[in-house]
Amino acid sequence: MAKIIVVTSGKGGVGKTTSAAAIATGLALRGKKTVVIDFDVGLRNLDLIMGCERRVVYDLVNVIQGEAGLNQALIRDKRVDNLHILPASQTRDKDALTQEGVEKILETLTKDFDYIVCDSPAGIERGAQLAMYYADEAVVVTNPEVSSVRDSDRILGLLASKTRRAENGQEPVKEHLLITRYNPARVDHGDMLNLDDIQEILAIDLLGLIPESEAVLRASNQGIPVTHDNDSDAGQAYTDTVSRLLGEKVPLRFHETQKKGLLSRMFGGGRR
């Protein structure tokens, strides 16, 4: 039985797809057989981030409508053996998704995989609700700004009521907070909400904190999930995040401004 993890946020542009790709990659690198599904029908992006856009033949909607088999639509990742991608359709809209269709696909995948990562579209409508409906765990991606925190709060309310687990009265969906685009210097300046404020409002466990980093944009444009970039702060932060998702205790990094060492203070060098 695979664990179904939804990556969601409510607000758009906070880094859901980047995080879904990075987490799925990280899980696969740790030897877990993983599939990542793009639920953003009509605004397909995951294939670009994963660098497999030229290999898409069939998609999620084709499978739901019986036009292709699941195995025909699954794309094997070039870099990691255990990783598969199920792309969304770019030419359809979210109404093409049906609850029964999604359930059937997840049921089939759950037999072959250890982890199913669902990349949710923004918003709280049909696409987002279907992406979260069957989830066992949820990674709520939040930026350190008030609108993002409020939307995440809304999503957490939906996770507690509009999921299969909630409707069947099972153990609730396990909620994790993933803060992305965190810039400690700007937090110190008061431009961004700080970690404690976000955690106080959302009141869920912190899974990870991804610093604002050039590496993320670079990775997106190259189509290589940032987890592969082990030299970068963001890459390392995602690796930590995956370890915590697997139940390991890893200390938090990148949440404080780098203290300048004596030498760099004297010579004015070092990272800013």
Binding site: R150, D151, D153, R154, L156, G157, L158, A160, I201, A203
Partner: peptide
């Protein structure tokens, strides 16, 4: 949480937790 409504139509309401924006 945001978007949720909790009501006690006949008496007092006690929330053990926060009421978010």
């Amino acid at each position: 949480r945001s978007g949720q409504q909790v009501s006690a139509p006949e008496g007092d309401l006690v929330v053990v937790g926060s009421v978010n924006a």
